[in-house]
Design a protein around this nucleic acid. Sequence first.
DNA 1: CGATGCATGTAAGCTGTTACATGATTGC
DNA 2: GCAATCATGTAACAGCTTACATGCATCG
Lengths: 181, 181
Amino acid sequence: MAIRTLSELEGVCLGLVNKHQPCTAYLLRQELKAAPSSHWQASAGSVYPLLARLQDEGMVLSTADRADGRKRRALRITPRGRAALKKWLVTGVDPDLISSVTDPIRSRTFFLGVLSDAGRVSYLNDLVIEMERFLGKTRNYLNTISRTDDIDAYFGALGAVRITEARLEWLQEVRNELSHC
Amino acid sequence: MAIRTLSELEGVCLGLVNKHQPCTAYLLRQELKAAPSSHWQASAGSVYPLLARLQDEGMVLSTADRADGRKRRALRITPRGRAALKKWLVTGVDPDLISSVTDPIRSRTFFLGVLSDAGRVSYLNDLVIEMERFLGKTRNYLNTISRTDDIDAYFGALGAVRITEARLEWLQEVRNELSHC
DNA sequence: CGATGCATGTAAGCTGTTACATGATTGC
DNA sequence: GCAATCATGTAACAGCTTACATGCATCG
C-alpha cells in the first residue's frame, strides 16, 4: 500500500518517536511544551488519537510496559513509519509550505493605522520588550542543546534564534520610524 | 455588550475592510491571495460566513449594490468594528502569540538525521533554491507598495523580506555545515 | 459565443483545541 | 497523607479547508 503524506503534527510526533524510542506519548507532549514555540500545544486530545492512528497504519509499535506498575505504553517506529517520516520531511521543498509561515505580529502591523499615535507607540514599545524576552528564551533553549550530541536539534534551535533576531530588529526599526512621524 | 476577541483571520479581514471600504468580500480574498504568504487561503467557505458573523455582531455593514446589475455587497466597518479591530491588534503583546510562529521548514530540520547523507544534501540544496525564489517574491511584493502611500503595508511587507532573508541565511549555514561531515 | 473573471454562497471534512475524566507514583 | 507529576484517554467544539454550486459581465 502507498504511504500517505503525514500532517505537520504527525510528522513532528513521528520524528520525536524515532529520536527518543522507546518512549511514551507523555514524553512527546513534554518535549513539545518545552520548545520555545507555543505553536504546538500537543494536547492529549490530539496526541493520543494521532498515535493510535499511526499505530493502526503500522507506522509505530506500542508495547504495554508495566515495569513500575503504571499503565504505560512504550512507542517505537517501524520501517514503514521511517519511510513515512522521510517522505514527510522532503515535502519541505514545496513552495506552498515554504511560504506558509504565520506571524501574528506581522499580520497586525498591516493595520497599525487604526491605533492613535500614542497607542501605536506604546504598543510597539511593549512588543519590543516582549520580543526581547522571547529572544532570551530561544537563546536559553539553544544553550540546552549540545551541538555534537544532536546537530539537528542544534540547527533547529539556531534557526529559532536567527529568525527571532530578525523579527526583533525589524520591530525596532518599525518602532523607531513610526515614533517620530 | 462586551466586545469579544477576534480570531486571526477575522482580525485580518476586518482590517482589510477598514482599509479598503467600501469593498466586496471578493476583493478581500484577492488581497489575501496576492500576499506572498500562503498561510491564508481565504477560501470562500471561510470568508463569507466570517463576514456574515461580523455583520450579525454589528462590526461590519453590508449594503446591496446592484449598480452594474451584478449581485454584490459593499462592506463597511462600524464604530463597534473599529473598536474590535483595535482590541484585536493590541493582543499582539501576548507572549503566547509572539511565540506562535510556525515554520514547517524549521520543524523538519529537527529530523534531518533520518535522511541519508546524499538525500540530506540534495534536500537542503533544493530548499535553498526554493527559499531564494520565495525571497524574490517577497521583495517583488514589497516593491509594489509605496512607503508614503501606505506605511503600514510597507513595514508589514518589509518584515516578510527581513524574516525570509534570515531564514535563507540560516538554511545556507545548515547546508554548508551538514555537507562536509 | 465561449473563456475568463467577478461575485456569493453551502456542505462535508480535516486537524487541531479545551475541558473533562481517571488513576497510579513519587516526594515532601 | 496530600500535592505534584506521570500517564492515558474521550467528547465537544473551533476554525479553517476543499469541493461544489450558481450566475452575471467583460473581452476577444
